[in-house]
């Protein structure tokens, strides 16, 4: 019997095992997304309509192709079909890292979501989204909120629907060894996301929010060279650009010509949320202090 999985509100029929995802029963209309193992062309750009938007990414209307050297080639089509062609000898975990990251991201773009690069936490029925560049401390912060009993909606990619609600993603946080140690999380029993990387899959099935929740607060996290945590609210027209620049894989969105709808969504979201820039010291990351500071700010902003 075929097993179905759920992520980002989609019922997924996958011929590739996806242990990070929850299982679900298939709705009457059949699965939303099918994942097949199969031949992916070495480069599709010889075919009409394709454009090269990166050394490793090509797009055509409704279609997307990605090559992760030494790992796999992927295509994502019309928000409904993914093909995966692993390189010889590669481990399944490595393939899933990019399948569940960039490739699912392309599918979500094709399905019309605004995608933010960050994570989403359920704060008493409303969503806090924390955005920032890789290395700013987003995943550590998400794990710290989970340790305090708050439920996660999504880590790394936050899809936002037309009503400005965040869609639940995958019930796991990808956590580096040092972040785990900072939070007293033992990594001995956790799976590495890939062999040779000190980065682990932390399952959060018990503290995962399964329904979309409206976004109320967005924080832009950045490490800096000062010694205190500082929060600066952003108002007016300045609220639009940070949402655009922290779009997940903005290059894909622009490449697939989805920009007009995306800009419209960014504008709508900017008008609805409390947005603030959060600077935290680059050395001596006091993650508990940061959680306290954000909770206090959310309380103030209401």
């Amino acid at each position: 019997m075929t097993e179905f999985h759920r992520a980002y509100g989609l019922c997924i029929d996958s011929r590739i095992a996806l242990p990070e995802l929850d299982r679900c029963s298939c709705p009457e209309g059949g699965p939303d997304l099918t994942i097949l193992a199969g031949d992916v062309p070495e480069t599709p750009c010889a075919t009409e309509g394709w454009r090269v938007i990166s050394p490793f990414v090509q797009v055509a209307e409704g279609r997307f192709w990605l090559h992760v050297p030494g790992v796999a080639r992927f295509t994502a089509e019309y928000g409904r079909l993914i093909r995966v062609d692993p390189c010889a000898g590669v481990d399944a975990g490595s393939v899933r890292v990019f399948l569940l990251g960039s490739v699912l991201g392309a599918i979500l773009f094709q399905r019309g979501f605004l995608l933010l690069h960050g994570n989403a936490i359920d704060i008493d029925g409303r969503t806090m989204v924390c955005i920032g560049v890789s290395g700013s401390g987003k995943s550590t912060l998400a794990a710290a909120f989970a340790a305090r009993g708050y439920r996660l909606l999504s880590d790394d990619v936050v899809p936002v629907d037309a009503d400005c609600a965040a869609i639940p993603g995958i019930p796991r946080i990808k956590l580096w060894q040092d972040s785990a140690e900072r939070l007293d999380i033992a990594t001995a029993s956790l799976d590495r996301i890939r062999p040779g990387l000190a980065k682990f899959n932390l399952p959060v099935r018990d503290s995962f929010s399964e329904t979309p929740l409206p976004i109320r607060w967005i924080y832009i996290l950045a490490p800096d060279n000062n010694t205190d945590i500082t929060l600066t609210a952003i108002s007016g027209l300045d609220r639009f650009q940070p949402l655009l620049s922290h779009t997940y894989r903005r290059r894909f969105m622009e490449g697939m010509a989805l920009q007009p709808e995306h800009l419209h969504r960014c504008g709508a979201l900017a008008g609805k949320v409390h947005l603030a820039r959060v600077r935290r010291p680059v050395t001596g990351f006091d993650v508990d202090g940061l959680v306290d500071a954000l909770l206090a700010d959310m309380e103030r902003a209401g």
């Binding site: 990166s54 990605l66 992760v68 050297p69 960039s102 290395g135 990808k174 890939r194 040779g196």
Partner: peptide, 27 residues
């Protein structure tokens, strides 16, 4: 990291050092 991640289309935080190094000239 942001430059290399953006052009590559996937995260260097999911790559080994050797993979990142091989990626950089392409970027």
């Amino acid at each position: 990291r942001a430059w290399v991640d953006d052009v590559a289309g996937f995260d260097t935080s999911d790559l080994t050092q050797a993979e990142i190094e091989n990626l950089r000239p392409h970027v």
